[in-house]
């Protein structure tokens, strides 16, 4: 596979993922404020939990949420696998550096590395915590979409400017990723003879500078566009109609608080 195709495919897939996350899977009937509050509570509980029971429970809840919301299970699983592999790499030294009962010894030439039971336990607990936290947050994100998450954060009294910035980021990240792919193609189309990979990279790396300039240009125009339609001296807000609380919201909040209580009790 050619490098260019791989890069372009990566950029396009990333843009597609951000796009799909910004809209969400189905029009959710959940109150965004309650859903975001629950997402934060459950993510926090998963991230700071001890042992395996709570992460496993939260992982199960996220699976149920993904299935109920008819989100793309494949995409969600891809994200989880990516997170798990990444965390496994980061936590790989733990079994070797944590003191404790040695269960195996790895011989690497002159060096011998001892694998401790406590370290292995730490590593697995870390992976499960992180995966569960990522799983629950992405399940909410894929069900609600970033846009409703921003609405929820606004409902939690987040400053209006922050909401606007988040919304703009959600819209502009895919645009810039696609623009980058186009710029790479435009540059590569002008490499008309066979040159060394180092030279190719030198040409392609100029995209970074161009992206910065384009980013500045676009943000300058965007500021003008927002100002042109802002009639009041206050910062513009992207308010949307509020959704009333229903039985589903109460149930979700109740489950989240129960899990938080379980988490706190397990620590105490």
């Amino acid at each position: 596979m050619k490098l260019r195709n791989l890069t372009e495919r990566f950029l396009e897939n990333l843009a597609e993922a951000v796009d799909s996350l910004s809209v969400g899977s189905t029009p959710s009937s959940l109150n965004p404020t309650i859903a975001v509050l629950s997402a934060l509570v459950l993510t926090g509980t998963a991230a700071f939990s001890y042992g395996f029971a709570l992460p496993a429970l939260i992982l199960a809840i996220s699976v149920v949420l993904v299935l109920l919301a008819h989100s793309s299970v494949r995409q969600w699983t891809k994200i989880l696998l990516f997170v798990s592999v990444w965390v496994a790499l980061v936590s790989a030294p733990l079994p070797f550096i944590t003191p404790g009962k040695s269960i195996a010894v790895l011989s690497l030439g002159l060096i011998e590395l001892g694998v401790s039971f406590e370290g292995l336990n730490e590593m697995i607990a870390f992976i499960s915590r992180t995966t569960a936290a990522a799983a629950i947050f992405t399940s909410f994100a894929s069900a609600m979409g970033w846009r409703r998450i921003v609405n929820g954060l606004e409902g939690l009294r987040m400053p209006g400017q922050f909401g606007l910035f988040l919304n703009l980021s959600i819209i502009h990240i895919p645009l810039f990723l696609r623009e980058t792919a186009k710029m790479l193609s435009a540059r590569e189309s002008r490499i008309v003879r066979k040159i060394r990979i180092r030279e190719v990279w030198r040409v392609l790396s100029t995209v970074v500078g161009d992206l910065l300039l384009r980013g500045y240009e676009r943000s300058w125009r965007l500021e003008k566009a927002i100002n042109a339609r802002s009639f009041i001296p206050l910062e513009p807000s992207l308010k949307t109609p509020s959704t009333a609380m229903g039985i589903k919201d109460f149930l979700l909040l109740f489950i989240s608080l129960c899990i938080l209580t379980l988490g706190v009790l397990s620590v105490v």
Partner: peptide, 25 residues
């Protein structure tokens, strides 16, 4: 800024002007 209610500016590149998540917004 009140006078902006009386002036409507349409930019050359729509991508510079559009910043909301949906057409409705």
């Amino acid at each position: 800024p009140e006078a902006r209610k009386k002036i409507g500016l349409v930019f050359q590149d729509p991508n510079d002007q559009l910043f909301n998540p949906t057409v409705y917004d």
